[in-house]
Design a binder for these strands. Structure first.
Length: 283
DNA sequence: GAGGTTGTTTAGAA
DNA sequence: CTTCTAAACAACCT
Protein backbone atom coordinates (compact mmCIF):
# COMPACT_ATOMS: atom_id res chain seq x y z
CA UNK A 1 0.00 0.00 0.00
CA UNK A 2 2.27 2.68 1.23
CA UNK A 3 2.70 5.59 -1.11
CA UNK A 4 2.14 9.21 -0.16
CA UNK A 5 -1.65 8.95 0.44
CA UNK A 6 -1.29 5.87 2.61
CA UNK A 7 1.39 7.47 4.74
CA UNK A 8 -0.80 10.53 5.09
CA UNK A 9 -3.47 8.17 6.39
CA UNK A 10 -1.01 6.70 8.89
CA UNK A 11 -0.13 10.23 9.97
CA UNK A 12 -3.75 10.81 10.85
CA UNK A 13 -3.90 7.48 12.68
CA UNK A 14 -0.96 8.47 14.82
CA UNK A 15 -2.40 11.91 15.41
CA UNK A 16 -5.77 10.72 16.64
CA UNK A 17 -4.39 7.71 18.50
CA UNK A 18 -1.52 8.97 20.61
CA UNK A 19 -0.79 12.64 20.01
CA UNK A 20 -0.39 14.43 23.34
CA UNK A 21 -0.14 11.15 25.23
CA UNK A 22 2.84 10.04 27.22
CA UNK A 23 4.72 6.91 26.14
CA UNK A 24 4.86 4.35 28.93
CA UNK A 25 6.57 1.55 27.13
CA UNK A 26 7.89 0.49 23.75
CA UNK A 27 7.35 -3.18 23.03
CA UNK A 28 9.56 -4.53 20.30
CA UNK A 29 8.24 -7.87 19.12
CA UNK A 30 10.66 -8.02 16.21
CA UNK A 31 13.92 -6.05 16.35
CA UNK A 32 14.29 -6.77 12.64
CA UNK A 33 12.43 -3.57 11.81
CA UNK A 34 14.65 -1.30 13.90
CA UNK A 35 17.25 0.54 11.82
CA UNK A 36 20.43 1.63 13.56
CA UNK A 37 18.80 1.53 16.98
CA UNK A 38 18.49 -1.24 19.55
CA UNK A 39 15.20 -2.04 21.29
CA UNK A 40 16.74 -0.95 24.55
CA UNK A 41 17.92 2.41 23.24
CA UNK A 42 14.58 3.08 21.53
CA UNK A 43 12.65 2.37 24.69
CA UNK A 44 14.96 4.37 26.93
CA UNK A 45 14.83 7.37 24.58
CA UNK A 46 11.04 7.42 24.38
CA UNK A 47 9.63 6.40 27.74
CA UNK A 48 8.11 9.38 29.48
CA UNK A 49 8.08 11.40 26.27
CA UNK A 50 4.94 12.78 24.68
CA UNK A 51 3.95 12.45 21.01
CA UNK A 52 3.66 15.80 19.24
CA UNK A 53 1.87 16.55 15.97
CA UNK A 54 3.18 14.12 13.35
CA UNK A 55 4.43 15.29 9.99
CA UNK A 56 5.11 13.56 6.69
CA UNK A 57 7.58 13.99 3.88
CA UNK A 58 7.10 11.81 0.83
CA UNK A 59 6.68 8.27 2.12
CA UNK A 60 8.28 9.05 5.50
CA UNK A 61 6.25 9.58 8.63
CA UNK A 62 7.94 11.96 11.06
CA UNK A 63 6.74 11.26 14.59
CA UNK A 64 8.11 13.99 16.79
CA UNK A 65 7.92 13.89 20.57
CA UNK A 66 8.94 16.43 23.19
CA UNK A 67 12.29 14.64 22.98
CA UNK A 68 13.68 12.69 20.04
CA UNK A 69 11.96 12.00 16.72
CA UNK A 70 10.84 8.62 15.39
CA UNK A 71 11.07 8.14 11.62
CA UNK A 72 8.89 5.44 10.08
CA UNK A 73 8.95 4.03 6.57
CA UNK A 74 6.46 1.39 5.50
CA UNK A 75 8.08 -0.35 2.58
CA UNK A 76 5.54 -2.25 0.54
CA UNK A 77 3.43 -3.78 3.26
CA UNK A 78 3.73 -1.65 6.38
CA UNK A 79 0.94 0.10 8.25
CA UNK A 80 0.14 1.83 11.50
CA UNK A 81 -2.83 0.79 13.61
CA UNK A 82 -4.37 2.14 16.77
CA UNK A 83 -5.03 -0.65 19.26
CA UNK A 84 -6.04 -1.19 22.84
CA UNK A 85 -3.97 -3.36 25.19
CA UNK A 86 -6.67 -6.01 24.89
CA UNK A 87 -6.11 -6.49 21.18
CA UNK A 88 -4.01 -9.62 20.71
CA UNK A 89 -0.66 -9.09 19.08
CA UNK A 90 -0.94 -9.86 15.40
CA UNK A 91 1.67 -11.94 13.67
CA UNK A 92 3.02 -8.91 11.86
CA UNK A 93 2.86 -6.43 14.74
CA UNK A 94 6.54 -5.60 15.07
CA UNK A 95 6.59 -2.67 17.48
CA UNK A 96 4.02 -1.16 19.87
CA UNK A 97 4.24 2.32 21.36
CA UNK A 98 2.17 1.99 24.51
CA UNK A 99 0.41 5.07 25.87
CA UNK A 100 -2.11 4.10 28.53
CA UNK A 101 -5.22 2.56 27.05
CA UNK A 102 -4.01 3.31 23.57
CA UNK A 103 -1.17 1.77 21.70
CA UNK A 104 0.17 2.50 18.29
CA UNK A 105 1.36 -0.56 16.43
CA UNK A 106 3.80 -0.68 13.55
CA UNK A 107 2.60 -3.62 11.52
CA UNK A 108 4.51 -5.02 8.57
CA UNK A 109 4.44 -8.32 6.75
CA UNK A 110 7.65 -8.07 4.77
CA UNK A 111 10.27 -6.05 6.58
CA UNK A 112 11.72 -4.07 3.74
CA UNK A 113 11.94 -0.81 5.64
CA UNK A 114 11.51 0.09 9.28
CA UNK A 115 11.89 2.51 12.16
CA UNK A 116 14.69 4.97 12.84
CA UNK A 117 15.37 7.28 15.74
CA UNK A 118 16.98 10.71 15.48
CA UNK A 119 17.74 13.20 18.21
CA UNK A 120 16.10 16.32 16.85
CA UNK A 121 14.90 18.24 13.80
CA UNK A 122 18.44 18.51 12.56
CA UNK A 123 18.62 14.73 12.63
CA UNK A 124 15.44 14.60 10.59
CA UNK A 125 16.91 17.00 8.07
CA UNK A 126 20.03 14.89 7.77
CA UNK A 127 18.16 11.59 7.51
CA UNK A 128 15.87 12.87 4.76
CA UNK A 129 18.39 15.06 2.98
CA UNK A 130 18.38 12.94 -0.16
CA UNK A 131 14.68 13.44 -0.77
CA UNK A 132 13.23 15.90 -3.23
CA UNK A 133 10.29 18.12 -2.26
CA UNK A 134 7.06 16.45 -1.16
CA UNK A 135 4.91 15.83 -4.21
CA UNK A 136 1.98 17.71 -2.64
CA UNK A 137 4.07 20.85 -2.23
CA UNK A 138 5.21 21.10 -5.83
CA UNK A 139 3.59 23.79 -7.98
CA UNK A 140 3.57 23.81 -11.80
CA UNK A 141 6.67 25.98 -12.15
CA UNK A 142 8.77 23.91 -9.76
CA UNK A 143 7.51 20.74 -11.44
CA UNK A 144 8.87 21.99 -14.75
CA UNK A 145 12.23 22.72 -13.15
CA UNK A 146 12.41 19.26 -11.63
CA UNK A 147 11.68 17.59 -14.96
CA UNK A 148 13.94 19.88 -16.92
CA UNK A 149 16.88 18.26 -18.66
CA UNK A 150 16.20 14.73 -17.45
CA UNK A 151 16.81 12.11 -20.09
CA UNK A 152 15.25 9.28 -18.12
CA UNK A 153 11.76 8.08 -18.90
CA UNK A 154 9.03 10.14 -17.31
CA UNK A 155 7.78 7.33 -15.11
CA UNK A 156 11.27 6.74 -13.72
CA UNK A 157 11.55 10.45 -12.95
CA UNK A 158 8.18 10.55 -11.18
CA UNK A 159 9.18 7.62 -8.99
CA UNK A 160 12.65 8.97 -8.22
CA UNK A 161 12.40 10.04 -4.57
CA UNK A 162 15.36 12.35 -4.90
CA UNK A 163 13.48 14.33 -7.52
CA UNK A 164 10.00 14.25 -6.06
CA UNK A 165 9.09 12.50 -2.82
CA UNK A 166 5.98 10.41 -2.37
CA UNK A 167 5.03 8.82 -5.68
CA UNK A 168 5.33 5.05 -6.12
CA UNK A 169 4.60 2.55 -8.83
CA UNK A 170 0.81 2.72 -8.66
CA UNK A 171 0.52 6.49 -8.45
CA UNK A 172 2.98 7.02 -11.28
CA UNK A 173 0.93 4.79 -13.59
CA UNK A 174 -2.30 6.43 -12.48
CA UNK A 175 -1.00 9.94 -13.05
CA UNK A 176 0.42 9.25 -16.51
CA UNK A 177 -2.75 7.50 -17.56
CA UNK A 178 -4.85 10.50 -16.55
CA UNK A 179 -2.43 12.87 -18.22
CA UNK A 180 -2.51 10.74 -21.39
CA UNK A 181 1.25 10.49 -21.60
CA UNK A 182 3.04 7.19 -22.30
CA UNK A 183 5.26 6.13 -19.38
CA UNK A 184 8.33 5.55 -21.51
CA UNK A 185 8.47 9.06 -22.96
CA UNK A 186 11.73 10.83 -22.23
CA UNK A 187 11.09 13.48 -19.59
CA UNK A 188 13.13 16.12 -21.37
CA UNK A 189 11.20 15.56 -24.58
CA UNK A 190 7.80 16.42 -23.15
CA UNK A 191 5.99 19.48 -24.44
CA UNK A 192 5.01 22.21 -21.98
CA UNK A 193 1.39 21.20 -22.43
CA UNK A 194 2.16 17.60 -21.53
CA UNK A 195 4.13 18.60 -18.45
CA UNK A 196 1.22 20.73 -17.39
CA UNK A 197 -1.20 17.83 -17.82
CA UNK A 198 1.02 15.55 -15.75
CA UNK A 199 1.27 18.11 -12.99
CA UNK A 200 -2.47 18.64 -12.90
CA UNK A 201 -3.12 14.90 -12.88
CA UNK A 202 -0.67 14.54 -10.03
CA UNK A 203 -2.45 17.19 -7.96
CA UNK A 204 -5.81 15.64 -8.60
CA UNK A 205 -4.80 12.04 -7.95
CA UNK A 206 -3.03 13.04 -4.75
CA UNK A 207 -5.87 15.20 -3.52
CA UNK A 208 -8.48 12.51 -4.12
CA UNK A 209 -6.46 9.69 -2.62
CA UNK A 210 -5.17 11.63 0.37
CA UNK A 211 -8.76 12.37 1.25
CA UNK A 212 -9.51 8.68 1.70
CA UNK A 213 -6.08 7.76 2.99
CA UNK A 214 -5.17 5.37 0.18
CA UNK A 215 -5.36 4.99 -3.58
CA UNK A 216 -8.99 4.25 -4.42
CA UNK A 217 -9.47 1.12 -6.50
CA UNK A 218 -12.70 2.41 -7.95
CA UNK A 219 -13.85 1.70 -11.47
CA UNK A 220 -12.61 5.05 -12.78
CA UNK A 221 -9.09 4.46 -11.51
CA UNK A 222 -6.46 2.60 -13.46
CA UNK A 223 -5.16 1.11 -10.24
CA UNK A 224 -8.34 -0.89 -9.86
CA UNK A 225 -7.49 -2.85 -13.02
CA UNK A 226 -4.00 -3.87 -11.98
CA UNK A 227 -4.73 -7.34 -10.75
CA UNK A 228 -7.10 -8.43 -13.45
CA UNK A 229 -5.55 -10.88 -15.92
CA UNK A 230 -6.59 -8.98 -19.02
CA UNK A 231 -7.28 -5.40 -17.94
CA UNK A 232 -9.09 -2.84 -20.07
CA UNK A 233 -8.78 0.94 -19.98
CA UNK A 234 -11.44 2.42 -17.66
CA UNK A 235 -11.78 5.34 -20.05
CA UNK A 236 -11.96 3.80 -23.52
CA UNK A 237 -12.08 0.05 -23.03
CA UNK A 238 -8.90 -0.65 -24.99
CA UNK A 239 -6.86 -3.56 -23.74
CA UNK A 240 -4.11 -2.21 -21.50
CA UNK A 241 -0.43 -2.79 -22.12
CA UNK A 242 1.86 -4.24 -19.54
CA UNK A 243 5.58 -3.55 -19.55
CA UNK A 244 8.46 -2.95 -17.24
CA UNK A 245 10.10 0.35 -16.35
CA UNK A 246 12.83 0.63 -13.75
CA UNK A 247 12.13 -2.96 -12.90
CA UNK A 248 8.53 -2.24 -11.99
CA UNK A 249 5.41 -3.50 -13.69
CA UNK A 250 3.92 -0.70 -15.73
CA UNK A 251 0.37 -0.45 -17.01
CA UNK A 252 -0.76 1.94 -19.71
CA UNK A 253 -3.39 2.42 -22.38
CA UNK A 254 -1.97 2.41 -25.93
CA UNK A 255 -4.99 4.30 -27.20
CA UNK A 256 -5.13 7.09 -24.62
CA UNK A 257 -1.43 7.41 -23.94
CA UNK A 258 0.16 6.30 -27.20
CA UNK A 259 1.90 3.08 -28.06
CA UNK A 260 5.18 3.63 -26.32
CA UNK A 261 8.32 2.02 -27.67
CA UNK A 262 8.88 -0.25 -24.72
CA UNK A 263 7.72 -3.74 -25.45
CA UNK A 264 9.90 -5.17 -22.73
CA UNK A 265 8.08 -7.83 -20.80
CA UNK A 266 4.82 -7.08 -22.57
CA UNK A 267 2.16 -9.74 -22.57
CA UNK A 268 2.75 -10.18 -26.27
CA UNK A 269 -0.81 -9.49 -27.28
CA UNK A 270 -1.04 -7.54 -30.54
CA UNK A 271 -3.65 -5.37 -28.84
CA UNK A 272 -6.37 -4.76 -31.38
CA UNK A 273 -7.74 -1.32 -30.77
CA UNK A 274 -11.38 -1.61 -29.92
CA UNK A 275 -11.79 2.13 -29.76
CA UNK A 276 -15.41 2.51 -28.67
CA UNK A 277 -16.87 5.93 -27.97
CA UNK A 278 -13.79 7.59 -26.57
CA UNK A 279 -14.01 9.56 -23.36
CA UNK A 280 -16.75 8.71 -20.90
CA UNK A 281 -15.86 12.05 -19.41
CA UNK A 282 -13.09 13.15 -17.11
CA UNK A 283 -12.47 12.09 -13.52
C1' DG B 1 8.49 -25.17 -7.42
C1' DA B 2 7.94 -20.70 -10.20
C1' DG B 3 6.82 -16.26 -10.44
C1' DG B 4 4.46 -12.26 -8.82
C1' DT B 5 3.97 -7.97 -5.27
C1' DT B 6 2.46 -0.98 -3.56
C1' DG B 7 9.93 0.15 -1.70
C1' DT B 8 14.85 1.17 -1.23
C1' DT B 9 19.75 0.31 -1.64
C1' DT B 10 23.70 -1.39 -3.76
C1' DA B 11 26.72 -2.87 -7.40
C1' DG B 12 27.89 -2.75 -11.95
C1' DA B 13 27.42 -1.51 -16.76
C1' DA B 14 26.62 1.67 -20.64
C1' DC C 1 27.41 12.65 -13.80
C1' DT C 2 23.11 10.24 -15.50
C1' DT C 3 20.58 6.25 -16.31
C1' DC C 4 19.47 1.52 -16.42
C1' DT C 5 19.53 -3.27 -14.75
C1' DA C 6 19.73 -6.94 -11.48
C1' DA C 7 19.95 -8.48 -7.02
C1' DA C 8 19.14 -8.26 -2.26
C1' DC C 9 16.16 -7.59 1.73
C1' DA C 10 11.40 -10.77 3.69
C1' DA C 11 7.05 -12.83 3.53
C1' DC C 12 3.44 -13.63 1.69
C1' DC C 13 0.20 -14.59 -2.74
C1' DT C 14 -1.42 -17.31 -6.88
Amino acid sequence: MPELPDVEGFRRVLDSCVRGRSIERVEVADPGVLREVTPWRLERALVGRCFAEPRRHGKWLIAATDGPVVLLHFGMTGSLVCCSPADPLGRHDRVAFVAGERQLRYRDQRKLQGIRLVADQDGVRRALSELGPDALDVGPAEFDELIDGRRARIKAVLMDQSVLAGLGNLLADEILWRARVAPDRQAAGLAAEERRRIHRAMRRVLRDSVRVGHIPAGSTWLTGRRDSPDPACPRCGTRLRRGRITGRTTLWCPHCQGEGQALSGAAGVPAVEQDPSDDPGRE
